[in-house]
């Protein structure tokens, strides 16, 4: 039935929250997301950060020290390393080795092609030694659909990278090495059911390439950055905004990542999430550098929300 129901009037996100009597505030912040920079070997068309080969932004040595010090005094459960392509940061192995002892787990968000381009073999040793969880982009089982989003040649490179990770034990039972996949839509539509997608990917990837993985997450594309430009240029923006507003799910608010995560940008400033980082929408307390924070943001503090539907 949902296919035959079109959009409704757009209601700004903060009003949708108010209408449902919801307050978007923090619980205990358990995850520090570290954005090492906007440089990426890919220029994916859905990227909300506009990351790509043309971006020079990378976290410098002083900021790395400040982030490590902050993590040391904040006792995060999880450190979630992202970018850009974090593999393109020349200090990634060193950063992992400094952060890993400070948290129960480290996650590396990988586009797979940067990890397996042949010039960073040393990273595999670091990843397995610290049992870094790899959360990898794998949007579609279809080559042309995946490459329409991520660029030519990326599908095959991604399959080869996962084969390599599987050979190292990633995604294999009882190896202690976790490989998660992330599938996001290749266009102006919402993701499919996570459970059904995981089931299908598990079956097809194993059947075609012998690939195994631990979990699959489906993410919706957020209308910011390059994806927003594409939506506008392709005439899909209004329809997409109608669709995401119409699919507002009050029950999902309690589990939003921003309630338990704080994101630090490549230049050391803190944001409630990666999307607020893309918007340069700082914490409600004001623009705050990691060196100014004594610990994680206080439970109960409000999450910054723009007046639009993001």
């Amino acid at each position: 039935m949902e296919a035959l129901q079109a959009g409704r009037q757009i209601k700004p996100f903060h009003l949708a929250l108010a209408e449902h009597g919801l307050r978007l505030d923090r619980q205990q912040t358990t995850t520090l997301q570290v954005n090492l920079g906007l440089r990426c070997n890919q220029a994916c068309r859905h990227c909300h950060l506009d990351a790509g080969p043309h971006r020079p932004e990378l976290m410098d040595a002083a900021t790395i020290d400040q982030v490590v010090t902050y993590a040391g005094r904040s006792h995060f459960k999880t450190i979630d390393i992202t970018g850009g392509a974090p593999e393109l940061h020349p200090e990634l192995a060193n950063i992992i080795s400094r952060l890993a002892p400070l948290a129960s787990q480290v996650i590396l968000r990988s586009n797979l092609s940067a990890l397996n381009d042949g010039s960073r073999e040393f990273l595999y040793d670091t990843l397995t030694r610290y049992q870094v969880v790899i959360t990898a982009s794998f949007p579609s089982l279809n080559e042309s659909q995946a490459e329409s989003q991520r660029g030519p040649g990326i599908f095959r490179q991604s399959v080869e990278a996962i084969n390599r990770l599987n050979a190292l034990g990633y995604g294999r039972v009882d190896s202690g090495l976790t490989l998660n996949l992330v599938a996001n839509p290749a266009g102006a539509f919402l993701p499919a059911s996570q459970a059904q997608t995981e089931k299908r990917f598990r079956q097809v990837l194993h059947q075609k390439w012998g690939i195994t993985f631990n979990n699959l997450f489906t993410f919706a594309n957020v209308p910011l950055g390059r994806f927003r430009h594409w939506l506008i240029g392709s005439g899909n923006y209004d329809r997409y905004m109608d669709m995401i507003a119409a699919n507002f799910n009050a029950c999902a608010v309690a589990g939003l990542m921003c309630r338990t995560l704080v994101s630090v940008s490549w230049d050391g400033y803190l944001y409630d999430c990666d999307f607020n980082l893309a918007l340069d929408l700082p914490l409600v307390r004001g623009k705050t550098h990691v060196s100014q924070m004594d610990g994680p943001p206080e439970p109960g503090s409000l999450i910054a929300v723009r007046s639009g539907f993001t």
Partner: peptide
């Protein structure tokens, strides 16, 4: 129109 959108939204691709 509706089921082209639905197919994409349910994870199908253009080849399928």
């Amino acid at each position: 129109d509706a089921y082209t959108q639905a197919c994409l939204g349910k994870g199908s691709n253009l080849a399928e």
